[in-house]
Simulated scan of single mutants.
Amino acid sequence: MLPAAARLTRSQDFGLAIRRGRRAGRSRLVLHVLQPEAPRADCGTTPIRDSEEPARVGFVVSKAVGNAVVRHRVTRQLRHLVRQRLDRLPAGTLAVVRALPPAAPATSAELGRDLDAALRKLRLSAPADGPC
């Protein structure tokens, strides 16, 4: 279970992360991330949200994934995997993990690999190596 402070619960926050955040798609899931500061062209940053809040994560598992039993199993697997990786997200980050239909038969290891690949693509697994 995620700590209460790390849960994304408001639909406005889900929408904000999905519309304004960056995304990384994989075969079984899509990760949407809105960081508290957005990079600018001059290598500075622009504040988007309050970075004093902890990182918060939400999950979207539609009926396309399967029946209620399957959807809840996928949600539990993803919640457990995200809890282990929560420290990789900077404070103030909003993240939404959207499960795709191939997530239903996937093992936790496969979902974990997809989640790690998405975090790497968004440069959240290690410090960003950029020109600035």
Rank of each mutant, 00 (worst) to 15 (best):
R76C: 04
G66P: 02
H72A: 13
E52S: 15
S125R: 03
D50A: 09
N67P: 11
R71Q: 06
V30G: 07
V57C: 08
T75W: 10
V74T: 04
L94Y: 05
H72W: 03
R20I: 00
P54G: 03
V70C: 13
R120W: 02
H80E: 15
R123S: 01
T46Y: 11
G130N: 12
G15F: 02
T46E: 15
G92R: 11
A117Y: 00
P102N: 11
R19L: 03
E37D: 13
C43F: 15
V70E: 13
A64D: 12
Q77C: 05
G44T: 15
R56V: 14
A109E: 15
E52W: 02
E53A: 12
E110A: 15
R26Q: 15
L81N: 02
T45Q: 14
R20H: 14
F14H: 10
A99W: 07
A64N: 14
A41D: 02
P90F: 09
P36C: 07
A104T: 13
R20N: 13
R49I: 04
G25K: 02
H80N: 08
L34T: 09
G58L: 10
L94M: 03
H80L: 06
F59A: 06
E52F: 00
V70P: 05
G92E: 12
A55N: 05
P101W: 04
L111C: 08
S27C: 07
G92P: 10
C132R: 04
I18K: 00
T46G: 00
A55I: 08
Q35F: 00
A17L: 04
S11T: 13
P102F: 06
A126Q: 14
L16F: 01
G44N: 08
R76H: 10
L8G: 01
T45K: 11
P102C: 03
C132T: 06
P39N: 09
R98T: 15
G92M: 09
A38L: 14
A118S: 09
D50K: 03
D42H: 09
R79P: 02
L34V: 07
K63C: 07
